[in-house]
Design a protein around this nucleic acid. Structure first.
Lengths: 144, 144
DNA sequence: ATACCTGCAAATGTTTTGCGACTAA
DNA sequence: TTAGTCGCAAAACATTTGCAGGTAT
């Protein structure tokens, strides 16, 4: 999905909720949408601050929440304590392989898993909303 | 696995690391091993305190860490921020279905998944150590 | 004009750590 | 005797919130 298209999605989202198009939201959105890495709030804060050193943490967190609601961002709990935010394109769902040593993340897609999950949920009387599937191990660089 | 057997595992673990068999560790371990629910540190603290009101949070956390290292406990990140600790028996690996409304957790086992995960890891040059697979949805009580 | 937003600082909630006193081996 | 432990309070950490002043519509 193109950058401009995503901008429009966020823009409509803001308008539909009767929120405002502020300078700060634009800046944070721009940086976030141009990034493919899984960012922590702190990393995003650092990058955005290079352009606008007066921005605060609160605005970063508040905007990340909006981006998630708009469907452009997904929250990941991968490493223990901190949350990472992943730029979500309108592509197939994927999961993550995480190196416990250096933190490297590799994405993978197993389409068959979706149906299996549905089946498991249904068998237990659940309506499935989403899932987290993370494999932890050592990447090739870290096994040496 | 029987309670006595697990006690022995912890006991050897303590001895091998040249640690001490303290009264507090015994008490925390006893409560933890007798519980099947996924406990938060706070819940464990509350239960242990009924028997020994002088125990502190730090000791709870420190002992949970030891139980995990000894392989008797697994840390779960299921609900957003807090960690829950699951009493791990030497049984087959299982995963969790979590109700996002009431927090209910159901365990399930899909043995075939293990081989699939190994394959994914290998293909990406990773040595698999463990994984987390959590399905989120609404349980039958909460869909009403 | 009037919501909505912002940055700041303070608050929050969970987990960790430093410390002086205590205790198992 | 000497590491290891304990409970406490303080620190750390990521995230959230209250507020007074600023801004988009």
């Amino acid at each position: 999905m193109a950058f401009e298209e995503e901008r429009k999605i966020f823009s409509s989202f803001i308008r539909n909720k009767n929120l405002r198009h502020s300078e700060q939201r634009q800046q944070i959105m721009d940086v976030f949408l141009k990034t493919e890495r899984h960012l922590s709030a702190e990393e995003l804060y650092d990058i955005v601050r290079e352009k606008n050193p007066s921005i605060g943490y609160a605005t970063i967190y508040r905007t990340l929440k909006l981006l998630s609601e708009a469907g452009l961002c997904r929250e990941l709990q991968a490493d223990g304590r901190i949350t990472r935010y992943e730029h979500l394109h309108n592509r197939d769902h994927h999961d993550h392989l995480v190196c416990t040593e250096c933190g490297k993340m590799v994405e993978f897609e197993i389409p068959e898993i979706e149906a299996l999950q549905e089946k498991i949920a249904r068998k237990n009387g659940f309506v499935l909303k989403n899932h987290r599937w993370e494999l932890y191990g050592l990447c090739s660089d870290c096994t040496r």
